[in-house]
Design a protein around this nucleic acid. Structure first.
Lengths: 350, 350
DNA sequence: TAGGTGATTCAAAGCGCTTTGGCATGCGAT
DNA sequence: ATCGCATGCCAAAGCGCTTTGAATCACCTA
């Protein structure tokens, strides 16, 4: 069905060598010949067989993504769609394929090994690093180029990563709330086993303690970031004897749940209760409007996808580079969900 | 770096033939030998090179997904994460890889051609079919097995698809609202160029007209299903001289926007305004609780992913089957978002 | 005129695997 | 002693491509 090099070259009366060279832009081919070859290739809709090419060159022109599915809740992180969209653009531009492995997080190690040994990819993007994550040591041992989206704090060695400054983002957000007079600030975080969540927690507690506020464990939540989780956490916090006056949330989706709980309690977000959320700038969940609905620390995960892909391709094409780290700053945009702490409640004891 | 067949067989003092056969479970190998080979393979962590294997067998053990990115809004459908998770499970179980192409929807045709000619996949899953969609003719011409998630009404020929009965789902939902006394029911639909949205529209209008209610164009919206879109549409509808008393929505995310608009208008969902949404049962957006938040017609997109993958693998392994269609029924579950039409408003003229 | 040079082209090897078509060996049957 | 037939193993070809090393030719140079 598909035309191959042999047929193509025979139909042109040329050797496979020459045709191959012509198509791949080598100089030792007469310009006239090259034109003829190109033309014929276009006419026959010829595309070199990727596998054969890979075998011959040792390059697969493909990169792997291992998507872990949280075995607990069977949850797959919704930011992947956008990350993948960003990375995909880059791959397309460079002619790379993207191969995905969806794996229950328990079997993740095996998945990497598999990808590497089967030789089906030239490099790997690592998603969702844990605070201490065996994968990066594993990948270094395997010797396949890789880029981590995020960081693993516990790692001993250098490696390539691209991450948002989560600590700083949450520190600033907390300070912003403190400046508005809030003292009881709830943190509705992701799973703290995740590196990003651990850093956000750090930023939050740092900001609090440096202002003399002792973090209250009753206000700190940590779980998979679903709408229901946000709702449940907020409902609990609002029912406390000393409820929070503000929420710091790790994702837009959880924030929607929190807003729901706030309104269900007959309160109004932005007036009675303040909310700051982390915003991945997902395409289907834009925090838009002239005045954004949520005050948020934002960093586009799609852009992160692009950056990771760019870096990885660079790494594949120019091996042996020293590891490079790339820290993105999230921007804090003020929306309609924050306001001064209501007077009379949680007055600061001076 | 990676051990290969040649080395492995030499280290065993056997021919490549025998080792290959032993590993692939052929009978003409002494049981003792097979054990020895298996052991050695395990020890050396040997995995046959996928490309070489593919070249030799003509099978790639990979299937392609072409993910279109709506060029208008740069939007990538959030249901993909879950669909992919479902399909991924199946692929994993059968040892297939999944290769993704993220493409601006304009270049989609080229992407399919590419995948096929490069010979990098054994089959393809088609996402987001339009009401009239040139892709299925294209794929039939190409001759690669494919399964469509959804349907393309305009298609002339038979092909394999798996779809939800969108017309019926929306017809039932509309009837449910009519039974509650609602007469002004807004439809906040996806892009009607999409097949699923066209069918939903049909179900909605069928139900209305068969009850003698004339569909009001002012109540029918159609766009990419974002939270902001839901919000905007609902806000407009509620500001009409004769506002709707109920909404029928094509996605949970848009429904969240609608709820926001309802509450912003000082109304309460489920009492003042009823909402029924289509629910893809996304892992991070469960419509949970003892009483679900939303009354919804639900069908798991993850399950659809599994089914599509299963079907495609079957198709790849047993070619030449007649096309098979698979229509899933969505279930209507009653939640807290619906109630009788408020009296005094839009009273039915009898 | 012999030898050197640059420009083109080609035959063949090799990437790592499967698979075809033998080739031994042992054993019961003739 | 011979034939037939499993049984177990192997050498080599082939999948579609790249790449090495050489060949051919025209054209100069000494």
């Amino acid at each position: 069905m598909a035309m191959n090099l042999k047929e193509l070259s025979r139909s042109l009366g040329l050797s496979q060598t020459t045709v191959s060279r012509a198509l791949n832009g080598y100089p030792e081919v007469a310009e006239a010949t090259r034109q003829r070859v190109m033309q014929a290739a276009a006419v026959h809709n010829y595309r070199p067989n990727a596998r054969a090419k890979g075998l011959a060159t040792g390059r697969t022109m493909a990169v792997g993504h291992v998507i872990p599915v949280a075995s607990q809740h069977e949850m797959v992180n919704p930011i992947f769609s956008d990350f993948i969209a960003g990375a995909g653009e880059t791959y397309m531009r460079h002619g790379y394929d993207m191969v995905l492995s969806v794996v229950p997080d328990a079997r993740e190690e095996a998945a990497y090994r598999e990808l590497a040994m089967k030789g089906s990819v030239d490099g790997i993007i690592v998603h969702g690093p844990r605070a201490v994550d065996p994968r990066i040591a594993l990948l270094q041992e395997i010797g396949l180029p890789f880029v981590v989206h995020g960081r693993a704090s516990g790692a001993q060695t250098d490696y390539n990563w691209i991450d948002v400054n989560n600590r700083r983002a949450f520190q600033r957000a907390t300070e912003f709330l403190l400046d508005l007079g809030h003292r009881r600030i709830a943190l509705v975080n992701g799973l703290v086993s995740m590196d990003f969540a651990a850093r956000r927690l750090r930023g939050y507690t740092d900001a609090l303690t440096s202002r003399g506020v002792t973090p209250d464990p009753a206000l700190i939540y940590s779980d998979e970031m679903t709408e229901a989780y946000g709702f449940g956490a907020a409902r609990e916090v609002l029912a406390l004897a000393q409820p929070a006056t503000a929420f710091l949330v790790s994702s837009m989706i959880a924030a929607l749940g929190i807003r729901r709980a706030i309104e269900e309690a007959g309160l109004r977000m932005g007036r009675d209760i303040s909310v700051i959320t982390y915003d991945d700038d997902l395409s289907y969940l834009r925090n838009g409007g002239e005045v954004p609905t949520f005050t948020a620390t934002r960093s586009s995960v799609r852009q992160a996808g692009r950056l990771c892909a760019d870096r990885l391709i660079d790494l594949v094409q120019n091996p042996g580079q020293p590891a490079r780290r790339h820290l993105l700053e999230a921007e804090l945009t003020v929306g309609a969900s924050t306001g001064p702490a209501p007077a009379g409640v949680n007055r600061v004891v001076t």
